[in-house]
């Protein structure tokens, strides 16, 4: 049964992706991309990757789509005729695809429990992480402890993106400097009422995801994106000016490095206690407790950075849209 769902989802993915090649209307392209991301997320669920599905849904279908929409709001929604040599592209694609297909014939078959992937490193995570780390969600254990340095790198990547976007588009100024023009969907009474009801719920959900990530799917990254989404919704329905009044871009800019530093400081405390960087065992008398403290703090660091960076990037893009509208 799951195989059938799998096949249908895969077929839909291919159709969606294939359609994107030929559509020249960028709005449709972006919408189809959002659908593509959601399909990916659904597929990840059927493949047991709930954490990944969660992230893909909030990032691919959420943040990426919003950013793309704000971009085409400025750049226009039509792609003009392409003049590129399609034979060249086809040649490259066929060559690369051929190499990949050649590689697949030797690949371990789908879903067998004795594939090499499941044998060498992974069993330790599955068997001993619940006792070593003390968390039921193995993904969180691996993410935050065994491969905590990767996650530190990931947080830094997000921070690097913020540096890039801020330096390219600028951090938005203070609210008083903003254009007086009242934006937002003032006409949409229903939308505003519903947004008012749901925004607190979304923030509450973000906090749940943040602190419940040790036990179920979720964690700092997803929570940060969801919390940012609540403020983005606020900005969209009640005007950017009001949102900027609640969380100012300057604050966001200074919050982003704080999360990275929080993460790093956990590692530095481990170092001071004589252990290696990011070794949480030494954070408390009992190693399992230490792991737990460490993971909660670093997840908080991730959450803070992701929240502030996503919101900051949105402000930067929305500021550009506003500027374009005035001109």
């Amino acid at each position: 049964m799951t195989v059938l769902i799998d096949l249908i989802l895969l077929a839909m993915l291919v159709i969606t992706a294939f359609r994107i090649i030929y559509i020249k209307d960028l709005f449709s392209v972006v919408m189809l991309f959002g659908i593509y991301s959601f399909l990916c997320a659904a597929l990840f669920v059927t493949l047991d990757a709930v954490d990944v599905a969660f992230t893909e849904a909030s990032v691919g279908a959420g943040i990426s789509t919003v950013l793309m929409l704000s971009t085409i709001a400025i750049t226009g929604r039509k792609e003009k005729l392409s003049l590129h040599s399609h034979t060249f592209a086809t040649l490259i694609v066929l060559l690369t695809g051929g190499a990949l297909i050649y590689g697949t014939f030797d690949m371990p078959l789908f879903g067998l429990a004795d594939n090499p992937v499941h044998e060498h490193v992974a069993p330790r995570y599955i068997e001993t992480s619940p006792t070593e780390i003390g968390l039921p969600n193995m993904v969180t254990s691996v993410l935050a402890s065994y491969r905590g340095f990767d996650t530190f790198g990931e947080t830094v990547v997000v921070f690097a993106a913020a540096i890039g976007v801020f330096s390219l588009l600028g951090v938005r100024g203070k609210p008083t400097e903003l254009l007086a023009q009242e934006q937002g969907l003032t006409q949409h009474k229903v939308l505003r009422v519903v947004a008012k009801i749901s925004i607190p719920l979304i923030i509450l959900f973000a906090l749940y995801v943040q602190f419940h990530g040790d036990f179920g799917p979720g964690g700092g990254f997803q929570a940060g994106v969801i919390a940012a989404a609540a403020f983005i919704l606020y900005a969209l329905t009640f005007s950017l000016r009001k949102a900027v009044g609640v969380v100012s871009p300057r604050f966001v800019k200074y919050l982003a490095p704080v999360g990275v530093l929080l993460y790093a400081s956990v590692g530095l405390v481990s170092m001071l206690n004589g252990a290696n960087f990011l070794d949480y065992n030494v954070l408390a008398a009992d190693p399992v407790d230490g792991q737990h403290y460490g993971i909660i703090i670093i997840e908080l660091g991730v959450g803070i950075t992701v929240f502030s960076v996503m919101l900051g990037i949105f402000y930067a893009f929305a500021g550009q849209v506003e500027k374009a509208n005035v001109q």
Binding site: F152, V156, F159, I163, K253, Y254, A256, P257, V258, V260, L261, A264, G267, M271, N276, F277
Partner: peptide, 21 residues
Amino acid sequence: EQHLAVLPVLLPLIAAPLVVL
């Protein structure tokens, strides 16, 4: 001495957010 091998990455990684602050 013990942390020699990780410091070349760690130092600039910590300095980067400090610079923004």
